[in-house]
Design a protein around this nucleic acid. Structure first.
Lengths: 343, 343
DNA sequence: CTGTTAGCGCTTTCAA
DNA sequence: TTGAAAGCGCTAACAG
């Protein structure tokens, strides 16, 4: 207690062994250019003295931090957490750590966070731009400064220097709505998210495309683009939507699981039977839908895998030599429809 | 493109302005010992040249990284994410970033992660030990090496050098069960978590204490200590428990919200009416319980605040001078019972 | 108010 | 196979 022992460093080991710092460094690196006996001496002395390398010094010297910056729009969205888990799992294998930040759905915070990523703490960045992000100059700037980037979820194809990981939202939605149609549903409501987000635009397109293809009438009154960014307000917005419908849907396609659950909650409140009177499909599939009674049929999105793939792409970029121009990769992952009790 | 511009550094600005690096450094620091005109020159030149400080170099030189390491047992538990949000929100105000890792409920991974925290990347650590963690030597070791630590959730009072943030689990449970008793319930089941976790032990104690105090019989058959560490198995374990009960409870006190939801799901499956035939109370309160139909009454735990407080305590420690011995703080936060439809 | 200089702990040429 | 020494970019003590 109190006797704050100074950290052991290479120099200490070197002195103890009467050899140079360079040799100690090499030995610890398992560099074959060190005599085996020397290496062993160093290794055991290091252990004996409780040597612990200084990551910061290493980074300064090597120019690599082995940290990946991850920027998500919000923490309280299981999808993003799941993606982070995937990133973490993959990154860990390659000795990278992840530094997660939230842009809290704000373009300003996003910029702020990216600036802090510019300060050399991270080797690369994985991010999902906020819905507010119209101008992507800050992203391109970062890339120009030589910081590799991978985008996922709300991707922006204009960012030509970044890799992209996505799903085919339009197709997935089409399939989900088609499924409802084939079950004989004719008045299918749509609960979408913030219109500025590409994923929501695409899911809407898929919905419309399916209705068109099967000649199902499109009722504007059955379409809601949920604008709330806050759990609490989403709740109210959706409940109020279902309370005041002029015509009643026999199915609902919701653009997220959470919307799907809130939809079911609203319907149950109003006294509708699910799925007898109304079928409901969600989007995401992160465990919540499974617990609910009735459990929620939904488009299963490979969130964890998205994270893994994003990490893989980023680490690949990090290993590319600096002087070849990066050729952009766009990865489209598969989704599937998971059928449960709500349809 | 391609022309990977070298990063601007202090030296570049200094040379351009024909002044010393030190002056540039001071000017950028808003150090008052720099003539105003010089500072302005430096500032505008820095902006002009697109200077961005190198965080790593700063850290090496200053001995501070402004990073807080956070170690949680798992990511897929909203409680931990919420705590992280709290930490993040507070830390951010003091210019700290957080580096989150998961020990994946394993003692070995916990040790591994702590070792990586020893490498100088973080200034301090906030953690919730895993249930497997019996020996806490690795925690004390880290503290001895001068790395401040704050424990939360599954705290270990033996770790005398760390601050603790907790709630009074026993009291909170007592109150919850008492509430059920006062509603006239007499056969109250208990769904607990891993027995090795202090929080679950305490919640169990509170449950027993309440029953004793009100002379309610304790049925061993109505007590389940859920051992699963995995969402999927928890589900099965609980469903099977309720399927095979010899006597039927008129209330259930579940030690987490998730258990509460799974309990309701099981009960609904079996055809029980909630709350008419069985009341259910959960523990945590992180939004899920609110969506479910019926919504879940539960003990509201201030998760976000726990994070904030943990960060506050840690940052306080970081600001203490190194040579005074740290006096341990134990913070106990308030819980409350949030009544919803399930009781 | 400003400059000089010695580190921070490690990596990595270059020589020996 | 090893060592000496020059950085990596920044801070801070000291001198002026």
């Amino acid at each position: 207690m109190g006797l704050k022992k100074r950290r052991v460093k290479l120099e200490d080991i070197a002195r103890k062994l009467n050899i140079s710092i360079a040799t100690v460094s090499r030995a610890l690196d398992e560099n074959p250019r060190v005599k085996l006996s020397t290496r062993e001496k160093v290794l055991s002395m290091a252990k004996l003295m409780g040597y612990m390398p200084n990551q910061i010094a290493k980074s300064l010297s090597s120019g690599k931090t082995n940290i990946i910056g991850v920027l998500i729009p919000r923490y309280d969205e299981p999808f993003f957490i799941e993606v982070c888990r995937g990133i973490d799992q993959y990154a860990r294998r390659y000795n990278y750590k992840i530094l997660i930040s939230s842009s809290r759905n704000s373009y300003e915070f996003e910029k702020e966070n990216l600036i802090s990523f510019e300060k050399g703490l991270v080797d690369g960045v994985i991010l999902s731009p906020t819905h507010e992000t119209e101008n992507v100059a800050h992203l391109n700037e970062l890339i120009d400064k030589g910081i590799p980037m991978v985008l996922f979820d709300n991707i922006r194809e204009e960012v030509s220097g970044a890799d992209h990981v996505m799903i085919d939202d339009e197709k997935a939605s089409f399939t989900a709505v088609e499924f409802l149609i084939k079950k004989g549903r004719k008045k299918i409501a749509f609960i979408g998210g913030i219109k500025q987000k590409k994923v929501f635009q695409d899911r809407y397109k898929g919905y419309i495309a399916a209705l068109r293809q099967y000649n199902i009438p499109i009722y504007d009154e059955l379409i809601l683009h949920c604008n709330s960014l806050d759990r609490e307000f989403e709740d109210k917005e959706i409940l109020s939507f279902f309370r005041h419908l002029p015509i009643y849907p026999d199915a609902v396609f919701a653009c997220t699981d959470n919307y799907g659950l809130l939809t079911m909650k609203s319907l149950l409140k109003i006294g509708k039977k699910i799925p007898e009177e109304v079928s409901v499909i969600g989007f995401g599939d992160l465990g919540l839908g499974e617990v609910f009674v009735p459990s929620l049929t939904c488009v299963s999105q490979p969130s964890f895998e998205m994270g893994q793939k994003a990490a893989e792409l980023l680490i690949n970029q990090l290993n590319e030599s600096d002087d070849v121009d990066h050729k952009k990769t766009i990865l489209r992952l598969e989704t599937k429809l998971t059928q449960r009790e709500s349809t």
